[in-house]
């Protein structure tokens, strides 16, 4: 289904936490517990090292490109978020406010707002124009693991290790809805959340090893995805998930903790394809380029690979 386009075997010497391709498709950014962000130039043939952004004093757990590809936001264990000017290679803002490790970031589609989640159990909404915190959403009781915006940018979904998925209204900061899965006895930490392309559903991963698709309007899980033979997808790490919509029937994608990438059919919940990164370490992130014509996978040991779609 996918073949390798290029592979970076060791993006960083330390553990790699995140990698993103810029919205304009020209750049790859990787980040690591070594406190740096590396930028790589992409071309039709492959990937070449460009420069390193240094400044954080502790490991970085998440990076995001701004929608215009000119800026990168990074979240670090040094309690700050930095906004970097890609061209100049230096940071233009430091956002301070979180009182513990910053774990996750997301840009609003207009690029003027950034939301961040932290191990201090809060979500902060930042006005990037003024480098000011607009709102603090304190509704979780454990670290925030994941955030996402609905396609129209009005709703924020958050996943937390307290086992809750909450939806917030960006404008008022109010909690709009809370989802909890307690059918397996108790609730497990939520490790990743993402909106479906039409934002009517939420795909969540939790550390009981399942990936679930929620119909949040009706508080209902409508699909459950499992690893081969009903095994766990991830029980220890927060691994990314995504939707691939370039196929006739949309797919859900997630890595597992042994270096495999799983692709499920949304309707049948069957695994239609497994990609082996060969790294054997957890696949931290899976990122579609476009609507899935290409797929970026990031392994914790530093392997970054771009897959190219091949056939149906």
């Amino acid at each position: 289904m996918y073949k390798t386009k290029w592979t970076l075997d060791k993006a960083h010497d330390a553990l790699v936490t995140s990698a993103k391709i810029s919205p304009d498709g020209g750049l790859l950014a990787t980040t690591s517990t070594d406190r740096t962000i590396k930028l790589w130039k992409l071309s039709e043939t492959g990937v070449t090292y460009w420069k390193t952004l240094a400044g954080h004093t502790k490991g970085i757990s998440s990076i995001e490109f701004a929608p215009n590809s000119k800026y990168i936001a990074s979240a670090s264990d040094d309690l700050t978020i930095r906004i970097w000017d890609v061209e100049r290679g230096e940071f233009v803002q430091i956002l301070r406010g979180h009182t513990f490790h910053v774990t996750v970031l997301k840009f609003h589609y207009r690029g003027s707002i950034l939301v961040s989640g932290s191990a201090d159990e809060n979500i902060r909404v930042w006005d990037l124009r003024r480098a000011k915190c607009m709102k603090v959403l304190s509704a979780h009781s454990d670290p925030i693991s994941s955030l996402d915006f609905s396609f129209d940018g009005t709703v924020i979904v958050s996943g937390s290790y307290d086992g809750l998925i909450r939806l917030f209204d960006l404008e008022t900061g109010q909690c709009l809805k809370t989802l909890i899965y307690d059918k397996s006895g108790s609730s497990y930490p939520v490790s990743h959340v993402t909106f479906s392309p039409n934002s009517k559903y939420i795909l969540s991963s939790s550390l009981d090893g399942f990936v679930r698709l929620w119909d949040y309007m009706n508080n209902k899980v409508v699909k459950t995805f499992q690893n081969v033979d009903g095994g766990a997808v991830a029980e220890k790490y927060s691994l990314g998930t995504c939707f691939l919509t370039c196929f006739a029937s949309p797919l859900v994608c997630s890595g597992d903790e042994k270096g495999k990438v799983l692709l499920w059919d949304v309707q049948s919940k069957e695994i239609v394809c497994q990609l082996d990164t060969g790294s054997g370490s957890p696949v931290m992130e899976v990122e579609p380029v476009g609507n899935g014509e290409e797929l970026l996978t990031v392994c914790m040991d530093g392997q970054v690979r771009l897959w190219q779609r091949e056939g149906e």
């Binding site: 392309p197 039409n198 009517k200 559903y201 119909d215 699909k223 919509t245 949309p250 949304v266 309707q267």
Partner: peptide
């Protein structure tokens, strides 16, 4: 059947 693509 779940439609994850078509927006309101």
């Amino acid at each position: 059947e779940i439609d994850v693509i078509q927006r309101e």
